[in-house]
Design a protein around this nucleic acid. Structure first.
Lengths: 107, 107
DNA sequence: TAATCAATTAAGTATTTACTTAATTGAACA
DNA sequence: TGTTCAATTAAGTAAATACTTAATTGATTA
């Protein structure tokens, strides 16, 4: 799994941006007003989100409308669902190896 | 949505720990050997993961077996699935408000 | 009780991050 | 062509992060 995706979502401001974009498109200026943050700060956040392909910008004249890319969220959701699922019981599941301690109590 | 969860998963080492724990339990020492990292470093990572309730430690004597808590991963998976789903078309979805630009082109 | 062992905490450090203001880029239009 | 506007990039900074080694805690056992 890619920690870069989590890193992009690990900032409160960026997460708010993502939540806003999940509802509709926004340009940088609109986001900066909503978030009471400089356009520069928003622009830098958008770069982070763009770089990991969570959003894409569509240019109209000198505006850029940012929109959420749904696929990576879907993929991440599935990967986390996988993590949430306990593995099938394995034959090689010796407790010593499992826990790695010399005097491991059986779990 | 809570950015703290993403922050806890945003570090490559911690993500590896979580992936390991998704398969079986480990004690700190076993993880430190697997990851070729000091026990101290691992312990500090475990604290981060514990603090956001992604793992729990069970003590046996002076060992602590760490295990993944499945629920928060399931919950996060569902929240991301929600994000991945486009909102129903809204009546209040005026493009000017939508995008926030003075001369917004209709999306 | 003293020695042992896993785990945590303390202290220090190099790197990364999230912002700011100022300067730059690039398209639109009077 | 020159002005205007959105967006990005540059430069600087305070705070957070991920590690290290050393010291401490707390339970086990000789």
């Amino acid at each position: 799994m890619d920690s870069q995706l989590f890193k992009a979502l690990s900032d409160g401001t960026r997460l708010r941006i993502v939540e806003l974009l999940s509802g509709r498109e926004y340009c940088v200026r609109a986001l900066s007003l909503k978030l009471r943050l400089s356009e520069s700060a928003v622009s830098q956040h958008m770069k982070v989100l763009r770089d990991v392909n969570l959003v894409e910008g569509v240019s109209y004249g000198y505006y850029t409308h940012y929109r959420l890319r749904r696929e990576p969220f879907e993929a991440l959701s599935l990967a986390l669902r996988e993590l949430a699922t306990p593995p099938a019981v394995r034959k090689d599941c010796d407790a010593k190896e499992q826990v790695g301690c010399r005097t491991a109590r059986q779990a």
